[in-house]
Write a protein that binds this DNA or RNA. Structure first.
Lengths: 208, 208
DNA sequence: CGAAATCTCCACCTTTTGGTGGAGTATGCA
DNA sequence: TGCATACTCCACCAAAAGGTGGAGATTTCG
């Protein structure tokens, strides 16, 4: 049969791509048909090769993984994408799944887990590990930050003072304080430094 | 000839190990003789296999990369270790090189860069890329934190207040402030939140 | 030994941050 | 239409953080 599963691998690290290709090569019914090193390339190559499954890292240069997923899913609503990332505390998991990813794997997994996930997702099901599902549920339950609060939080992480944030966003310092108050209570912390580190830990913002 | 280079691969991510093994397998004169997933295992396997070259990730469970390097180099002063990491801003580079690493590579490298580095280090030379050497020189030039300042900085990143830090360290709040003043000026920042984020960015401390 | 660095602490002051409670406007959804 | 949410802003207050300058004790190292 010509039923070998066509796979695209997206990761900016050459070694990781190599590892995935090597792992997949041991499976007779799977084949890597394309490799991309960034989000843009992933979108282009998806158009060209229409892989059955895309294994995608979230941290990518140019266009990040979440954006790439959204774009690909817009063009090809049936695209099946499995997210592959190093950081399990990452808020982007949630965003990626919302953007239409069908599976999620940590890079520490075994070959078996990978091939199982590929088969599961290829068969049309989703494959989200218990740990992640749990964290996701947790996350969903918890209060989410508004976009304005995110603007402020990013600047807190960037080390800006309330005054600077106010002028960055063209609002008064009082408003900044209001937002910060919401942020602190939503994150369950008591000052901006904690807000910064827990935001980084939970992957709500990144140090790029 | 029996002159194939014996290599040990240390990384907690299965995929990365697989990638390295696959890359190295394409070189006829190199061979992976051992794989370790954490620092302890790396030390044990080094005793058993005495590889010519060890490729070591720095972020490892149990015993971190730097400790493992130090331990291995204590037992086998001639061990040749190449550090392999994802994060190029990482302060651990410096520590790893001090601990006796002979080479340093980012995971984004090409197959050529890897094999070249292996050959260079195997021949007894060091192989530190220009970018890293530069950053290292920069780092050396810059003021370094004292151990007490590091104690304080860690707690700042941990989101502790001055009062809490004081009681953690059994010193007065005044002393904490003194240390923080030094930290801020040494890091070239103006408040604790910036201190936290730049410390994370430069890899001086980690969010574990 | 003597200089340098480190660690500890104090006083005094200014600025920043966080806490509380209230309030008006716009938007969107039931 | 009416309620909920998000965004904006205000005043007032208390606590925390940061800036400056000085000082004694200990260790380290040339």
């Amino acid at each position: 049969m010509s039923e070998s599963i066509q796979i695209m691998v997206v990761d900016d690290h050459h070694i990781v791509r190599q590892g995935l290709v090597a792992l997949i090569a041991t499976m007779p019914d799977m084949k890597v048909v394309a490799e991309a090193a960034d989000g843009m390339q992933a979108i282009e190559l998806h158009r060209r090769y229409r892989p059955d499954i895309t294994l995608m890292d979230l941290r990518l240069p140019h266009k990040n993984g979440v954006e790439a997923i959204a774009q690909i899913r817009t063009e090809f609503p049936t695209a099946r994408i499995i997210v592959l990332t190093t950081f399990d505390g990452d808020e982007d998991i949630y965003r990626a799944l919302q953007a239409g990813a069908k599976g999620y794997l940590l890079k520490g997994m075994t070959a078996d887990e990978l091939t199982q996930a590929i088969r599961t997702v290829h068969s049309g099901k989703s494959r989200i590990p218990a740990v992640v599902a749990e964290r996701l549920a947790e996350r969903m339950g918890g209060p989410s930050l508004t976009s304005r609060e995110l603007d402020v939080l990013k600047r807190i992480v960037g080390g800006r003072s309330n005054k600077e944030i106010a002028s960055d966003l063209f609002i008064s310092e009082a408003t900044v304080k209001t937002h910060i108050n919401s942020i602190l209570s939503k994150l369950g912390v008591s000052d901006r430094t904690q807000a910064a580190t827990t935001a980084l830990q939970r992957g709500i913002v990144h140090l790029d």
